[in-house]
Nucleic acid binder design. Structure first.
Lengths: 116, 116
DNA sequence: AGCAAATATTTGCATATTTGCATTCTCTCA
DNA sequence: TGAGAGAATGCAAATATGCAAATATTTGCT
């Protein structure tokens, strides 16, 4: 069993295993984005965005380019988007069945008190 | 930003973020496998395999079927394999560039002493 | 009922990740 | 050169994950 390769792949998927990082990738779909733009889109503070970008950078999923004082990020391989598309299809198909989804949604309806 | 959905997706990717679980999925490519068969293929003890299967089960990635005393697992949505294929392509393309790969391989050459 | 085989779950503990914050680094330009 | 904007890094507390050993469940058999 090619273990190192599987470890490597696992690392890759782990990099996708965070909501913020998924949103970042979605934001990069149309093209480059500066850290600032991402920061606004994600409504997160600068350092958090930077940290998540670092994770993606270390796994070679994104590349950065510095222009003056601002840094632009882009996805290295557009096939990443294809991957996300397949993932989305899987969800739309049936992975989100009632149980799991309700369980997840249940959690957060606890926090904002009651919705009215 | 549809946050719950992104969380959900992140959970999904996290489930794929473990070497053993990736190997399990590869094993399930041709079809059903019993826990025992997986246990042998992965060379892991029973409870570890069962634990990893539990993760995949909870994320609705695999289904199980009990026949007598043995349990057979299968992947719920074949599109999962398509996802793995796209991931493989991404690797073959260029995600595994020298740096990252060497870094990873470097780690493990430390453990088995020296390779001779 | 009582036992054995095949799986699952629980538990305790080590390790890894996440998060918020403070600090540092790096350009640019006056 | 030094002030300020934009990013990155460091760090500590909280949380989550991974792993192995022990214990539970379930099923089939006698």
């Amino acid at each position: 069993m090619n273990q190192p390769l599987h470890r490597f792949k696992a690392e890759f998927f782990k990099a996708l295993g965070h909501p913020a990082r998924l949103v970042i990738l979605e934001q990069l779909r149309p093209g480059e984005r500066s850290v600032q733009e991402l920061q606004i889109a994600l409504d997160m503070d600068q350092s958090s965005v930077s940290q998540q970008l670092a994770v993606l950078r270390h796994k070679n999923i994104v590349d950065s380019r510095k222009e003056g004082t601002t840094v632009y990020y882009r996805v290295r391989d557009p096939m990443i988007f294809q991957l996300l598309d397949v993932a989305r299809e899987i969800f739309n198909n049936h992975l989100i069945d009632t149980q799991a989804m309700l369980a997840l949604l249940g959690e957060e309806s606890l926090e904002p008190a009651n919705r009215k």
